[in-house]
Design a binder for these strands. Structure first.
Lengths: 296, 296
DNA sequence: AACGAAATGCAACATTTGTTTTATGTGATA
DNA sequence: TATCACATAAAACAAATGTTGCATTTCGTT
């Protein structure tokens, strides 16, 4: 609430020009900004000790169309504080219609950045470190992410293969996705990634893993995700975006943090493993830094 | 945000006993707690995709007198949070090792958020919209991302399959990665994703595509990436992270923005396509929202 | 003191709100 | 298949909301 706030400043600057009743209303709004968004205008007027019409008149006095503008502004301020610096206004329907592409892009990116930044809340960090501990203890890590979540699952698996052979990616053609679990046991952990809408197969496999005694770490999108009940630890990521689709960027960020934490548990071993992987890939000519001269 | 909250816990614990519509309403409330206090019930219902009556029924189902109890509770939560962040700093009673882990996590996440936020610079936005335009014009889009970039390529492809059949994912077993380009021509575009160290195969395929006359859009990590010279448009994303590994979160964000921009070009068509995809997947029983009862 | 203008209170208005009632659909049971 | 119970959608409802017009009061000016 200490941020620059144009409406607030306007109220203050025009305060001296107001009538006594307007001042009383304005003073109450300045001193109880959050109440404006939380109660009805009539109740606010009652609490401020003025007539309802005074609130409307105050809005017009400020050059606004009506009281709703005041409320909308204060509601936005609350959202702003909760979401960090995200520009909200997702449900504004019509504005999205004619939004310039650049504007849509900016909004999407800012939203993503805010969602990732929100993962730094203590509750999330605790779950992240707990999950990393559990994964570190496991004999093997089975990684499961179907459909849209495949990208996250595969990324985690890929990075982990650079570190060692601990992970097994539950994926494959011809409906062999779950075959990896054949030899899974109580010493192992399943890292399951699934977001709404939840792939049925993911849930089935997670439950199977549970029955087999595996520990389960979930990356999912809600406290009421079906994975939460199955998992020992569930890390939550928001998936909402200003476009048609869900976003997986926060989920990917979580996956990357888990990799980072795991590597950090034994930095020298991680470094050695990475060097070995480097040598291997180098000897296979996997990488290049310039456009290759094509053969023939 | 994730503090102990009796009503919240009650919703979660009773979630499994709810009907589908009640669940949808409850899920939205769980995932958007602040909105409950900031908008009217009818608008909340609209955003949650349920009937207004469902909100009332949810309140009664939870043992409350009416919806106003739900709103009052969430409003109270917002009022309390005003100085809640002082209390939050106190509750961190972690071991030193966890402390370090949490610190690393926070640093990584903040870094990722900042990198994505930096993509909103005008130069990036221009390239993004130009790339989207080019992709929209193309007859087909070939998507190429190997090794670590597979996750981004696949995510782009997956989302685009929900919209139509425009993309072809250059991937496959048994060294058939490049086969998709056999029938590629000048009307097509290659979306190539590659970051340092650049997979040799990606560069070879990009060059082949160039020779075949395809347009090339690149998502890569540097102005001096070998892809920049090949590409018509190169979108740059930073990949540095506070850990051992490169991050792909910004690249994924770019991919998501491109999808969003493409869908935005014809919103009604996109909506129709998504609905058709929905129906298809629904009829295949692909998704579930609860733990499935396992067969035998 | 009297006038006029501005400020204020009050009541009626059209909307919108949350709720309840009434149909309609849907899926399980016998 | 028929039946029943239940979940859902649609419509109707009273209560409240924000707004407006008008009457009253207040206050400065003459």
């Amino acid at each position: 609430m200490l941020q620059a706030d144009p409406l607030r400043e306007r109220i203050v600057s025009l305060f001296d020009a107001m009538s006594p009743q307007l001042r009383q209303a304005a003073r109450y709004i300045i001193e109880h900004p959050q109440e404006v968004a939380l109660v009805s205008m009539r109740e606010l007027a009652r609490n401020a000790g003025v007539q309802p019409s005074t609130m409307t008149r105050l809005a017009k006095f400020l050059g606004l169309a009506g009281y709703d503008d005041i409320r909308a502004h204060h509601a936005e301020a609350i959202r702003f504080r909760v979401d960090g610096f995200a520009a909200r206004a997702m449900q504004t329907e019509e504005s999205e219609e004619d939004m310039a592409a650049a504007q849509l892009s900016r909004r999407m990116l800012q939203g993503l950045a805010a969602q990732i930044a929100r993962l730094t809340e203590p509750a999330s960090l605790e779950r992240l470190t707990a999950a990393a501990d559990r994964l570190a203890q496991a004999r093997r890590i089975f990684v499961l992410g179907l459909r849209s979540c495949h990208s996250v699952a595969w990324h985690f698996h890929y990075v982990m293969t650079l570190l060692g052979e601990k992970t097994i990616h539950l994926d494959g053609p011809a409906d062999t996705v779950g075959d990896g679990l054949i030899r899974a046991g109580a010493q192992d952990v399943l890292l399951a990634i699934s977001i709404n809408p939840y792939a049925l197969h993911s849930l089935e496999l997670a439950q199977l893993a549970r029955e087999k005694g595996l520990g389960i770490i979930a990356i999912t999108d809600s406290e009421v995700s079906p994975l939460v009940g199955l998992a020992d630890i569930a890390i939550l990521c928001s998936t909402e975006s200003q476009s048609f689709f869900h976003t997986l960027a926060p989920a990917l960020a979580i996956s990357e943090v888990l990799c980072g934490l795991l590597a950090n548990k034994d930095r020298t071993a991680a470094l050695a493993a990475l060097q070995r992987a480097d040598r291997h890939l180098l000897s296979l000519n996997t990488y290049a830094t310039a456009i290759p001269r094509r053969r023939i």
